[in-house]
Design a protein around this nucleic acid. Sequence first.
DNA 1: GTCCGATCTGGACAGCGTTTAGATAGATCA
DNA 2: TGATCTATCTAAACGCTGTCCAGATCGGAC
Lengths: 225, 225
Amino acid sequence: MADDATTAQRTAKRIAPAEAPKPYHHGDLSRALVAAGRRILETEGPDALSLRAVAREAGVSPAAPYHHFKDKGELLDAVAGEGWRELGDAIAQARAEAASPAVAVTEIGVAYIRFARENPALYRIMYRMACDRKTMPEHARKAEGGVGQVAEAILAAGAQPTSELDLHLIQIAAWCTAHGIAEMVAFKEFEELKEQLGGEEAFVRAVLAHVGILSGTARAMLQAS
Amino acid sequence: MADDATTAQRTAKRIAPAEAPKPYHHGDLSRALVAAGRRILETEGPDALSLRAVAREAGVSPAAPYHHFKDKGELLDAVAGEGWRELGDAIAQARAEAASPAVAVTEIGVAYIRFARENPALYRIMYRMACDRKTMPEHARKAEGGVGQVAEAILAAGAQPTSELDLHLIQIAAWCTAHGIAEMVAFKEFEELKEQLGGEEAFVRAVLAHVGILSGTARAMLQAS
DNA sequence: GTCCGATCTGGACAGCGTTTAGATAGATCA
DNA sequence: TGATCTATCTAAACGCTGTCCAGATCGGAC
């Protein structure tokens, strides 16, 4: 009876998401597919993330996803989207927890790189998708998204950019730098150095601290002082 | 008759596609395959670079490459190796042509990014391979290779790193920064900005000049001055 | 001149992304 | 209530991929 009732109810609203017996035609697949994709990404790496594998993991036929996503790329985009959202959260948290606005920018960078390091397969998909479409997802660019927060943090740190453009360029430079380090920090040839510095995060902070030496601006400052 | 002769000859050496007579059993395939790979990379992009396509382009069967490369990855590695060598050359040239040692580091960065921009498919393969093995090819790290030159240029610019480690960190920071910009400079969302600044190279230089703002070092210098 | 070992082919295998035709079942309207 | 509509899903097929195998081919050493 109770079972009948719940079944009826479940049927009526067509969901019953996480675990419990699969209800309906086949639950809401979109979400299930994205979840399956992330599961595969975490357990088997980005190379195993085939459309068929995702469908298998979700318990549907290989053609089923095509009723929810135009093609494989669109599914991966959805997975990547989740990643960008979480990266945005991680950055917001790092910013909130920073000891002072002055160090917030660095903390954002560290959080960004840590996210990439803790979710390597996901980060790879995120950037692969971004490169293919040559764009970041909308919400990653907005103020509440990952990158938008950098500009705010820079201003909060007391920087006085000479123009809107100046600020924008700092933001882009920060972004590129973080991405570059994020992609390379796992390279084996840095392992000795990491140990020497007392861990990976220390290494990341050391590299971030040395970025400035390179720029014309930094050199100008050096000569001025 | 002539037809018979040429046919016989062709049969004897079995194909002779491009131009000059291929020597031997089938010429030295290794080199031909790498060349074919680069050709495909340039004309059809990195996604079209399948083992079978390379074999087709070189005029051999899909199994032939396996007598010269353990698997597809090893072939791509060879293609990437050529890329790293050429990138090293481009950097050396930029360094040689720099107006002064003081600007050489920036010029190296610009040359690096320009190379990536002019050979996007090749650069992608280069980094995909590096990421998979988590290492750069040997010769890219040596002094005569691309990255090794950065340290020399930094010293030549008059920088006085406090230690071997300090220099190494600057080098790594430079490398990561260049890579990050190289991968993102093609993004559509920067197009307006590029126009505003008068071209892509101007944009790259502007971003490079703004990198320093981010680092703790730069901030310290700012406060000191 | 015969044999060896390197090189290449043709065919096969499983797995991939994608498309098509047809089955299933919730929702809608009579 | 029952018939119909529409979204969803399956089964089967296509051509592509990377890789392996048995066998053909041929340059070079004995």
